[in-house]
């Protein structure tokens, strides 16, 4: 069925709203997944693919994250286009708004380090959930069922709330001594 110019304009207007609501978040998520890649290009390609299939998609937000994830796999070994005088991780960290107090900043960093040590699927599910994606959307991105996503999030929560194995008996998040008496 061919679309009329009015249909085309309406679709573009919807897409503009979708783009405005999600572009920035997607770029941040991509740079969180891998600071080394060109997140702008991957995000642009993901949105292009989403626009091409706009009329067919039930959940465009899930689709654009999935497209970005696929694009990341293809581009993950490519160095980002922008030259940076800093180490990529430092540069990325420098762009983040910092919590005001040192103690909170350290707790956050420790917690994020623990997130990075999660198994890949749990890590991805947790990051997408932090961004606000629903379990169904996360399931679309990961290519699994909603129940599996629920299990991933539950397991991640259990691991992140347990004592930090890397701390080796020292202070865990919150500054309290972990006596290991769990």
């Amino acid at each position: 069925m061919t679309s009329t110019p009015d249909d085309e304009d309406r679709a573009k207007q919807e897409f503009r709203q979708f783009y405005g609501a999600n572009y920035d978040a997607l770029r941040r998520q991509i740079s969180w997944w891998d600071p080394a890649v060109d997140h702008d290009e991957i995000a642009d390609d993901a949105f292009l693919q989403t626009w091409r299939r706009w009329r067919e998609l039930d959940n465009p937000r899930a689709f654009v994250y999935k497209a970005a994830r696929n694009g990341l796999r293809n581009g993950r070994r490519m160095v980002g286009r922008r030259a940076s005088p800093m180490d990529l991780h430092e540069g990325d960290a420098a762009l983040m708004a910092r919590p005001s107090d040192v103690e909170t900043r350290q707790e956050f960093q420790d917690a994020l380090d623990r997130v990075e040590r999660l198994p890949p699927q749990l890590r991805l599910a947790v990051k997408l959930h932090a961004l606000g994606l629903s379990k169904g959307e996360i399931a679309t991105v990961l290519g699994c069922g909603k129940k599996t996503v629920a299990n991933y999030l539950s397991e991640a929560r259990r691991r992140l709330s347990g004592p930090d194995p890397e701390a080796g008996g020292g202070s865990g998040p919150g500054g309290r001594q972990d006596r290991g008496d769990v």
Binding site: S31, A111, S161, G172, G174
Partner: peptide, 30 residues
């Protein structure tokens, strides 16, 4: 344990969740 307020597990989970939300809002400028 991580669902019960007042436990260490609950505190750790709250910190992790706050850190994740903070990180999700951070990143390269749009």
């Amino acid at each position: 344990a991580h669902r019960i307020p007042g436990t260490r597990e609950y505190a750790r989970w709250r910190t992790a969740r706050a850190a994740l939300r903070w990180r999700a809002r951070s990143g390269p400028p749009a």
